[in-house]
Design a protein around this nucleic acid. Structure first.
Lengths: 191, 191
DNA sequence: ATGAATTGCAACAGCTATGTTCCAGTTAGT
DNA sequence: ACTAACTGGAACATAGCTGTTGCAATTCAT
C-alpha cells in the first residue's frame, strides 16, 4: 500500500518527529510552523507528511511508545531475577523516556493503536511486580497497582533532576535511586 | 487604589476562578468562552474582570497557592512531632490540591508573586523534613531534596487514584498511603 | 541524463479565539 | 427611590493557526 518514501522524505519525517517532540515538550500548544522551523523544514512540508496536527501527534505517540516497549523488553523482565530485571528495565526506560519527554510525559488521549501498546506495557510491568512480590522482594501486603503508579512517577521525577555527571553513568545512578526509593522509601533503615 | 467590588462582581470573580480551575483542569487550552459558560457568566464579563487570559491564569495561580500555603500552616509543621506533622500536612495538602488540580498540577511559569510563595512552601517543607531526619524518622543518608520531590509526586499520584469511599475518610486514607510509601516504600518489611 | 519525487515559497480561504465597544436591562448600596 | 455599578448580548476588528493549491527549483533513483 504505502509506497516507500524517498531518502529525502524519510529524513524529513524523522526530523519533523524529533523536532515535534522537542518543541511540544516545551509548549504543548505550539504551532505547526514552530515545529517546521525546529525541523528545518517549511510548514507546508509538515502538512505534506502529516495531514492533520492530530495525525502528527498520533504518529509521535506511536513512535515513542514503541521505543518504550522495546526498551522494556530488552530488560528481560520475565526471565531475569526480579531485582535485576527491575534495575535493567528501569535504566532502559529512563534512557528512552529522557528522549521522549513530551509524548511520554503527557497522558495523551490514546484512541489509536498506542493504547493497546500501553496496555501491554502495563501488563508487563504488573507481571514483573507480581513476580517480585512472590519472591519476597516486595511486601506481601503491598498494593501492586499503587506500586506500579509510584514506580512510574518515580521514574518521571528522576528525569527532572539536574544531571551533573555524564550521560550513561547518570542513567544508572538514577535507576538505582528509583529502585531504592521504590523498595525502601526514605525512612530510617533497620540495620 | 482598587475600589472594593460590589457583592455582584465579587461573586462573579469567584465563580470565574472556580470555573476556570474546573475547565482548565480538563483542557489547559480551553477558551475564555468555555470558562464563562462554566461560570454561568458571559464571555465579556470574564474579560471585564480579567483583561487578559494571562491575567486570569495568574490570578488562579495566586489564589490556589495561597490556599495551599494556608493548608500547610494549619498542619503546624514546626511544632508538632515530625510524624504527626507529616500526616496532618499531607492530609491538608491533599484536600487543597484536590480542589485545585489544574493550577497546582501544572508547573506554571511563575514570574509573578506566586513564585515567592512557592519558595516559602518549599522551604517550609524542607524544614519539616530536616527535623524529621534529625529525630530519626528519616534515614540519615536520605537526600532531602529528592525526598521532597518524591513526597510531592506521591501526593499528586494519590489524587489520581479512584476514590471509592467518602470524601473526608478518603483523604485520610490517601495521606496514610503517601506517608507510608514515602517512609518505607513497597519492599518487604522487616518484622 | 532523465523522469519522478520532494521541497520551499507565496498565496488563499476558513475558522477560532481574543479583546474591545456600545447599549439596554438588571442589581446592589445608601 | 435614586444612583452607580454590574451584566448580557451583539457587533466589530484583529490576529493566529490550519489546511490547501500552484509552481519553480532542487534532489534522488535508476
Amino acid at each position: 500500500m504505502a509506497k516507500p518514501l524517498r531518502a529525502d522524505a524519510e529524513r524529513s519525517v524523522r526530523a519533523i518527529l524529533e523536532a515535534a517532540e522537542q518543541v511540544l515538550s516545551h509548549d504543548s500548544g505550539a504551532s505547526m510552523e514552530q515545529i517546521g522551523d525546529a525541523a528545518g523544514v517549511a510548514r507546508t512540508t509538515v502538512h505534506r507528511r502529516f495531514a492533520n496536527r492530530q495525525t502528527l501527534i498520533d504518529a509521535l505517540a506511536i513512535s515513542a511508545i514503541q521505543q518504550l516497549a522495546e526498551a522494556i523488553e530488552e530488560g528481560r523482565p520475565d526471565t531475569a531475577p526480579p531485582l535485576v530485571a527491575l534495575y535493567r528495565v528501569t535504566a532502559n526506560v529512563l534512557k528512552t523516556k529522557n528522549a521522549w519527554k513530551f509524548t511520554l510525559g503527557n497522558p495523551t488521549s490514546d484512541t489509536s493503536a498506542a493504547a493497546s501498546i500501553w496496555e501491554r506495557i502495563n501488563t508487563r510491568c504488573m507481571e514483573l511486580l507480581t513476580r517480585a512480590q512472590r519472591e519476597g522482594l516486595l511486601d506481601a501486603a503491598a498494593d501492586l497497582e499503587w506500586t506500579r503508579q509510584v514506580y512510574y512517577a518515580l521514574m518521571s521525577e528522576a528525569l527532572q533532576r539536574p544531571t551533573p555527571g555524564s550521560e550513561a553513568a547518570e542513567t544508572d545512578a538514577r535507576a538505582e535511586l528509583v529502585v531504592d526509593t521504590l523498595l525502601y522509601g526514605a525512612g530510617r533503615r533497620t540495620q
